[in-house]
Design a protein around this nucleic acid. Structure first.
Length: 526
RNA sequence: GGCCCUGUCGUCUAGGGGCCUAGGACACAGCCCUUUCACGGCUGCGACACGGGUUCGAAUCCCGUCAGGGUCACCA
């Protein structure tokens, strides 16, 4: 005989949930699991529930929860029930639900499915040592397993203690995991788990089931590390006589180029000098990064801070461990909701790849309308002090032109900083090496001077006409076109990489272009 | 150590007995386009963990080995 959960579900509606702890940040691995869960609910027209696992948090709960909610909102993962919106099964904070766990435990006690256990830690330790000596696995079985429900109740009412669930003998506990297929355990290898502490606080494995039953969760979609909790939880469902949900255990996310789980502890190690540089570039000081634990590549807010498009992050995360077919990489959310399926989720762990995420984010940026690009890039320019907090029409227009000229070079919003800087600073930051390489060369200063005259005479200072003028000029005087182009770029923007020169000159305007050319010439004259 | 899960290019993946000389994507290298960079195009590099079966035929099914991971709490 064995217990099975297959086909034992009779909920009318698909209801999935994610149960984060208020940690102060949204972890990239967790959000991927949540995304799968959300996708299942949205596809079925069901409900996605956020339940806060705050039973042992000493932190300020509201404060530590906010970044998580913000993260979900930013990504576009919305919830139908949970914090800030409530719902028919409120409260959605486990810390406020303990009475439900106590009630359920009493019920099990009365039904003879659980018993009070008065064994001391020393006694348990002695038993464990004995089993170890005998080279047998330690399986806890308390003394009051055999007592009648009435005796148990009486005992418990006289003296509160830990309550354990009776694990049945000689059973095979079997689930059909929607991702991993059949998984089974021997009940004889599972010790009677404590479900309620002597002080009346519930344990995770118990509280989770009570909540999932109470909130009518139809699909328990969670990280693979919970797979080994599942048999105990199945037993709780059974003891409760509650309908069994589907289970799906999503494989863990590994560190980049590693077989190790992308852990929540020790995230600081991801803050490499490279990462630090990126964060510095968008205005975070090393001190701030040190204090905040959400500014590292294992959290969602890190990507928000750097100006990744949330759609890109979502797309990347979905593809991490899941595939639609043999070729699709860019999959719009709409399509994902329509076509997602748990059976196409891989069962092996996947390593997080920042390079690919960057590429995906860039693909989304490419197709973003110019207006949206301006909106997204503006805060970065403001934070860097290039543009006023209340931007002038001129600043906005220049930014728009720069972004337009920058084109596909813009992958994430913070990319605007290096490309945009030359157009918003009074003078370019000249890179001395570039200056030496492109301007301070034989004949080049003279060439620039002569060409300045042509530029000065130009009435239509558009990119196209600057280009024509330059080409005609080189043709007529038999000058090296490339040499002049490079010299112009460096002398007007200070850098060698960026939008086309003709665009740069056009955006700067005639006066400013000529001024900068002279500035560079003065500089190399020294 | 017990239990459970998992092994396809460096990474994400396709594949589920013959369409496999193993496909796509990122990354990397080269070439072309563009007198920069990026984009785009083309090419290259590069994997079925190992050993046994089953079969006419195995990346695919079975067994074993090895490796990695998860978990074994009055944490969640």
């Amino acid at each position: 005989m064995y217990f099975t959960i297959e086909g034992n579900h009779f909920m009318a509606e698909i209801r999935t949930r994610f149960a984060p702890s208020p940690t102060g940040y949204l972890h990239i691995g967790g959000v991927r699991t949540a995304l799968f869960s959300w996708l299942v609910a949205r596809q079925a027209g069901g409900k996605f529930i956020l339940r806060i696992d705050d039973t042992d948090s000493e932190r300020n709960k509201v404060e530590a929860l906010q970044p998580i909610l913000d993260g979900f909102r930013w990504l576009g993962i919305d919830w139908d029930e949970g914090p800030e919106i409530d719902g028919p099964f409120a409260p959605y904070y486990q810390s406020q639900r303990n009475h439900l766990y106590v009630d359920a435990a009493s019920q099990l006690l009365a039904a003879g499915k659980a018993y009070p256990c008065y064994m001391t830690t020393d006694e348990i330790k002695a038993e464990r040592d004995a089993s170890e000596k005998a080279k047998k696995p330690y399986v806890h079985r308390g003394k009051h397993r055999q007592s009648t429900p009435d005796d148990c109740l009486k005992l418990y009412n006289e003296k509160k203690t830990a309550i354990r669930l009776k694990v049945p003998d000689d059973e095979l506990i079997k689930i059909n995991d929607l991702i991993r297929g059949d998984v089974e355990w021997q009940s004889n290898l599972i010790g009677d788990p404590i479900i309620l502490r002597p002080d009346g606080r519930a344990l995770y494995n118990f509280a989770t089931v009570i909540d999932d039953v109470g909130m009518q969760i139809s699909h328990v979609i969670r990280a693979a590390e919970h797979l080994s909790n599942t048999p105990v939880q199945v037993l709780v469902y059974l003891a409760l006589g509650a309908p069994m949900p589907f289970f799906a255990h999503v494989p863990v996310v590994n560190e980049p180029n590693s077989k190790k789980k992308l852990s929540k502890r020790d995230m600081k190690k991801f803050v490499t000098s490279d990462v630090l540089k990126k964060l510095n570039a968008v205005g975070w000081t090393n001190e701030q990064i040190e204090i905040r634990d959400d500014l590292n590549p294992a959290t969602v807010s890190f990507y928000k801070e750097l100006g990744y498009l949330p759609e890109g992050l979502v797309n990347y995360l979905a593809r991490l461990g899941w595939s639609l077919d043999d070729h699709s990489e860019i999959i719009l959310l709409k399509e994902m909701v329509a076509k997602f399926s748990l059976d196409r989720v891989n069962n092996a762990p996947a390593s997080f790849d920042p390079d690919k995420l960057f590429w995906v984010a860039g693909e989304y940026m490419k197709v973003l309308p110019l207006d949206k690009k301006v909106d997204g890039a503006l805060p970065f320019m403001q934070k860097a002090g290039f543009i006023n907090s209340v931007p002038s029409p001129v600043e906005l227009e220049t930014l728009r032109k720069v972004i337009d000229a920058t084109g596909d070079r813009l992958k994430i919003f913070s990319d605007i900083l290096p490309y945009g800087a030359p157009f918003f600073k009074a003078d370019p930051d000249y890179d001395l090496k570039s200056l030496a390489k492109r301007v301070a060369k034989e004949g080049v200063p003279e060439l620039l001077k002569t060409f300045s005259v042509s530029l000065h005479a130009l009435s239509d200072f558009s990119a196209a006409s600057i280009e024509t003028t330059l080409k005609d000029f080189c043709l007529a005087g038999n000058h090296n076109t490339g040499m002049l182009i490079h010299a112009l770029r460096v002398s007007t923007t200070g850098i060698e990489v960026g939008p086309g020169v003709f665009d740069c000159l056009y955006i700067l305007g005639k006066e400013e272009s000529l001024r900068r050319i002279n500035l560079a010439l003065d500089l190399i004259a020294k």
